[in-house]
């Protein structure tokens, strides 16, 4: 199974498919846990398997599946709230004829309940503060990650910088695209754009170098001064671009560009 230092590619593929025997799988798992090379290859094999899965014929979800999921979420959220209440002190029913001898016990229980109630309140308060902090950290991390990506796209030596122009219309609308294919990073800054009718939007397109269909790269509308921009729209990584174009589309955007192409620019060969 091991070729000198690593798991053989054949066995790693079978492991990714869970097609090895339990004993073989355990051996692979143990090796992979301590081997970065095999771990990386296993992750790539999972990527290959994701593509195999993507190739299956698509089926419509059964009727009501979405509603059933939403209801389950709702019940779970409610159950979570009830559980929270369960953690609070429970009330105690009074007996109809309390005996004197039991008063001491009841008083102790009541005292314990008061302490528990106070602790329960404190725990809930701390939990809420912790959640608030978590949310702030998550928001900060997302913002930092976005800023880092913007900086990387703008400063990468291999980023393509393209000026998009329209013909002979003063003041000429222009668009400037910075594109880093390996990261799927793209920034568009457009100026002097004509205002658009209601119900319409501008849409940017990446025209792949391999001749495949144009990829929608985001919708944008100009401000009163005719300026518009797109920052890191959601586009696939690793698409080598031949050109970029901007079209006018319906407000919801389009899956294919509608002629005419209002702004266009070819990508230089030197980019990724």
């Amino acid at each position: 199974m091991n070729d000198a230092q690593h798991i053989s590619p054949d066995d790693l593929a079978l492991h990714a498919l869970q097609a090895l025997s339990p004993q073989e799988s355990a051996a692979v798992r143990e090796h992979v846990s301590g081997c970065g090379v095999c771990r990386a290859e296993l992750a790539s094999l999972h990527g290959d398997l994701a593509m195999v899965a993507l190739g299956v014929e698509q089926q419509p979800l059964p009727a009501g599946a979405r509603e059933r999921f939403a209801q389950r979420l709702e019940s779970d959220a409610r159950a979570g709230a009830v559980e929270g209440k369960r953690s609070e002190p429970m009330s105690i029913e009074r007996t109809s004829k309390p005996r004197l001898a039991t008063w001491a016990g009841w008083l102790a229980a009541a005292a314990a309940l008061i302490v528990a109630a106070a602790l329960g309140f404190e725990v809930n308060s701390l939990r809420a503060r912790l959640q608030e902090s978590d949310n702030k950290i998550a928001a900060f991390q997302a913002s930092e990650s976005q800023a880092k990506q913007v900086a990387e796209v703008l400063t990468a030596p291999s980023a393509q910088k393209v000026v998009l122009t329209a013909s002979k219309t003063p003041p000429a609308p222009t668009g400037r695209v910075v594109y880093l294919a390996s990261r799927g990073g793209l920034i568009l800054q457009a100026n002097n754009l004509a205002s658009i009718p209601a119900g319409k939007t501008y849409e940017l397109w990446v025209i792949p170098a391999d001749g495949s269909a144009p990829i929608p790269a985001g919708l944008f509308k100009p401000d009163a001064a005719g300026n518009g921009s797109l920052v890191l729209p959601s586009i696939p990584q690793g698409v080598k671009a031949k050109a970029f174009g901007v079209t006018l589309e319906d407000a919801a955007g389009s899956k294919t560009p509608t002629a005419p192409i209002l702004l266009a620019g070819a990508a230089p060969q030197s980019g990724e």
């Binding site: 771990r39 992750a43 990527g47 994701a50 993507l54 698509q58 269909a213 586009i235 696939p236």
Partner: peptide, 22 residues
């Protein structure tokens, strides 16, 4: 499960093109 994949399945249009290729 760790999956390395350069594909972005967030965009339905992209996803549909990729399905056909696969």
């Amino acid at each position: 499960v760790v999956v390395v994949s350069a594909t972005n399945l967030q965009s339905e249009a992209e996803c549909s093109i990729l399905m056909k290729r696969v």
